[in-house]
């Protein structure tokens, strides 16, 4: 159940934001994509989840070429995208947000069981069920966003900058532990992070994206030692 991109290019009008990206994610892996602001990380995830269309290249999953599939079909295939900036439905309750995450599923009992599963990961959400999404704190909203993405029972979770705007303590303790736990339960994770330190610790392999191109691809152990990566993404230490 490998997800594999070959030569994927995505455009905004005439601007080529992804320039022939090759990348794969094996079953059970956590893989991280690091890169400066504007490198194309979000564009890459949106292209995989079908929000944006690749103009060239192929995306393979479960033996199918999914690059032309509409977003809702990709969710049904088991790829869930937790977007940058959380994108909680502010006017809807936590409960409604979570159930929207399970929109592609019909079995009520399974959905309720899934709810219990995400409450185990994020107990605080259970106390907030009737509250509007917009009234949650930043950290709680991020938990809700991840929980909502899990409600479709994905094989693959695409996580776009989950630590954005959160207190560092919260990030290390809760967020990254939870990501590791979700992975242990069998969900492969493609993690886009500005916090390269943590991302390289939690992931097995990593890609470095620069202006739409993959310039490096290695095990995280090697990336952490790489001089170029150190100076550009790890604060030069």
């Amino acid at each position: 159940m490998r997800l594999e991109l070959r030569g994927v290019s995505t455009f905004y009008g005439k601007i080529e934001a992804l320039k022939g990206v090759d990348l794969f994610l094996d079953e059970g892996e956590i893989v991280t994509i690091i890169g400066a602001n504007g490198a194309g990380k979000t564009t890459l995830l949106k292209t995989i989840s079908g929000i944006l269309r690749a103009r060239a290249g192929t995306i393979n999953f479960k033996g199918e070429s999914i690059e032309a599939y509409p977003a809702e079909r990709i969710v049904r295939m088991g790829i869930s995208h937790c977007p940058e900036g959380r994108k909680i439905f502010h006017a809807l309750s936590v409960d409604e947000n979570l159930r929207l995450g399970a929109f592609s599923r019909d079995n009520k009992e399974e959905i309720n069981a899934e709810l219990e599963d995400v409450f185990r990961l994020f107990p605080v959400l259970k106390q907030r069920l009737k509250q509007k999404g917009g009234t949650l704190s930043g950290g709680e909203q991020q938990m809700l966003a991840i929980a909502r993405a899990l409600m479709s029972k994905p094989k693959i979770l695409l996580l776009d900058e989950p630590s954005l705007g959160l207190a560092p303590k919260l990030v290390e303790k809760i967020l990254f532990e939870t990501i590791a736990e979700i992975n242990k339960e069998g969900v492969s994770i493609l993690l886009v992070e500005q916090n390269a330190h943590l991302a390289l610790q939690i992931a097995k392999r990593g890609y470095v994206l620069e202006t739409g191109k993959i310039v490096l691809c290695d095990s995280c152990a090697n990336l952490i030692k790489n001089e170029a990566v150190k100076s550009a993404y790890l604060g030069g230490r």
Partner: peptide, 24 residues
């Protein structure tokens, strides 16, 4: 209803609604 909430989701943010698996 599930469809009704999907309408509200689509009105507030169509891109995220797609990510929920909603055929917008």
């Amino acid at each position: 209803t599930k469809l009704g909430v999907a309408i509200k989701a689509t009105s507030s943010d169509i891109e995220t609604a797609k990510l929920m698996g909603i055929n917008t």
